[in-house]
């Protein structure tokens, strides 16, 4: 549970571009653990994908591009992303709102939340993800699904009348915000595309300069393409977490609560 008394991040409402800039500041402050968790989560998935798609690398078009490979790789990364980056979200929840970060607690929460994560983020998505049209439903309607499952840890089924469940919490959190969240989703898609292109082309340029390999083959598909995809996913995991905080700040008035607490404490000190 987040503790507003021990927050390590300035609590106030922010615009989306400010959230994106703040993500860079968070990355800079927590670079080592975030990189470590990113590698831990992503490398096994990336190796698994490479093994799974090794037979699809044959060029299929006149342009010598393995389109099926590229498409399947994108789908696999999108399916795996919530699980691969879950530890990063849990770490941010701990690091920004707790006095100390406990790796054991992160591991325990990861295991505890795995069934819901697998059900909502993998099983429900697989049938629809190969069609581009419903991507908005999958990623845009309840964008903070992972954060709610991982950080709020509501039960899947209602055990008593009126109890909060994951789905009910998702409805409450996102209610009345669909317009704004859709706008943010579209901006993040555009920025994600830009970042992906920027990283991908940079890797390609570096590969060309270092190994004199300018033809789009081999490492361009097997290393640079998935690396650019995963880096983009990793960055947007952080921005999504910070956007989730921003949404809660606005909905629940955290910054007002902090002011109220501070003034209340000041009045209490004056009385005693």
């Amino acid at each position: 549970m987040m503790q507003l008394d021990h927050y390590r991040i300035a609590i106030r409402q922010r615009s989306y571009v400010d959230v994106l800039d703040l993500a860079l500041r968070v990355l800079r402050t927590h670079a080592a653990p975030l990189t470590g968790l990113f590698i831990l989560g992503v490398v096994p998935m990336a190796l698994f994908n490479a093994y799974l798609l090794q037979n699809y690398l044959e060029p299929e078009t006149e342009l010598d591009i393995p389109l099926t490979y590229l498409w399947y790789m994108l789908l696999l990364v999108l399916i795996e992303a919530p699980l691969a980056t879950a530890a990063i979200t849990l770490y941010l929840g701990e690091a920004l709102f707790q006095k100390t970060v406990s790796p054991r607690k992160i591991a325990r929460d990861l295991i505890r939340t795995f069934p819901q994560m697998f059900f909502f983020q993998v099983l429900l998505r697989i049938p629809l993800i190969r069609f581009v049209a419903p991507w908005f439903l999958l990623f845009g309607v309840w964008p903070y699904l992972s954060e709610v499952i991982l950080l709020e840890r509501n039960p899947f089924f209602r055990r008593r009348r009126g109890a909060m469940t994951t789905i009910r919490r998702l409805r409450v959190l996102h209610r009345g915000m669909i317009g704004e969240l859709t706008g943010r989703w579209m901006v993040s898609m555009a920025l994600g595309g830009l970042l992906f292109a920027s990283w991908g082309l940079t890797f390609w340029g570096l590969g060309g300069m270092l190994f004199n390999q300018w033809e789009p083959q081999g490492p361009v598909y097997t290393v640079f393409y998935p690396a650019a995809l995963w880096l983009t996913i990793g960055f947007f995991t952080m921005t999504r977490y910070l956007s989730y905080l921003d949404l809660r700040i606005r909905r629940e008035g955290w910054e007002v609560e902090l002011l109220m607490r501070a003034e209340g404490a000041r009045l209490n000190r004056q009385r005693t």
Binding site: R8, A10, I11, D18, R25, V26, T29, L258, L259
Partner: peptide, 12 residues
């Protein structure tokens, strides 16, 4: 707003 210098922010 209560804050301290250790908080991550874009203010300087």
């Amino acid at each position: 707003m209560p804050s301290n210098g250790d908080q991550i922010d874009t203010r300087i």
